[in-house]
């Protein structure tokens, strides 16, 4: 555990807190992509299947359960709970996620660590996480203007990815035999998807102003 990894996990947790607060306190899921949240639920449920047989630390196992629980709760609230379910707009949030899930499943089958069923599922979850934010980014793009809490949510997720990237660099130089090409590749792609958002986020928040983020 290093500081980058720890802060990365914390900002990941923060993103869940922001989103849960937004939809429970604000009673609205407007601007939030249910598609992205469903993808995250699939990602965590498939990657953390190994909760049943792998144990590396209490910290890890606890957070795995937290991530599955939070993403499931978010999906449940937006899909089934009133009044939130009535604020979700399926016409706006209509990214065809089958085009993300399909290719990631094929990639997981073909490119994985050692051709065991769990490694295939695990690789699938890594690939799917890399692109899971796309429906959310497309939704924001369509809306043009992004509500503050939503922009903080995406920013926290982006920070989590950036910090994980730094964690990998740190581990590469401080540990022997630390090599995970699949994770590095997918993680770099994933972080890259946030660059445009961060540019606009910075533009609207600089100088202490708290204007909503405007996307072209």
């Amino acid at each position: 555990m290093n500081i980058f990894r720890f802060l990365g996990d914390m900002s990941h947790i923060l993103s869940f807190v922001i989103l849960l607060l937004k939809i429970t306190q604000g009673k609205s899921a407007a601007g939030i992509s249910l598609r992205t949240q469903e993808l995250y639920m699939i990602v965590f449920c498939s990657r953390y299947l190994d909760l049943f047989w792998n144990f590396s630390s209490l910290y890890n196992s606890f957070l795995k359960v937290v991530f599955i629980a939070c993403s499931s709760a978010i999906v449940y609230i937006i899909r089934f709970k009133s009044p939130q379910k009535d604020t979700w707009n399926p016409e706006l949030d209509n990214f065809p996620i089958q085009y993300l899930i399909g290719p990631c499943a094929v990639a997981g089958l073909l490119i994985n660590q050692d051709w065991t069923p769990f490694e295939m599922i695990w690789a699938f979850s890594i690939y799917l996480e890399a692109v899971a934010i796309l429906p959310q980014l497309f939704l924001l793009q369509k809306q043009g203007e992004v509500e503050n809490l939503t922009s903080h949510y995406v920013a926290a997720l982006g920070a989590y990815r950036g910090l994980y990237l730094m964690n990998w660099v740190y581990r590469y130089f401080t540990e022997d035999d630390y090599l995970q090409r699949i994770v590095w590749f997918a993680g770099t792609v994933q972080t890259g998807l946030y660059i445009d958002f961060f540019y606009h986020y910075y533009q609207s928040k600089r100088g202490g102003l708290s204007r909503p983020v405007k996307l072209p």
């Binding site: 190994d50 890890n60 660590q113 695990w122 994980y164 035999d177 630390y178 699949i182 994770v183």
Partner: peptide
């Protein structure tokens, strides 16, 4: 492939 990759990240 990465035989040594540890699954200790989230």
């Amino acid at each position: 492939y990465d035989g040594a990759a540890p699954k200790d990240e989230l």
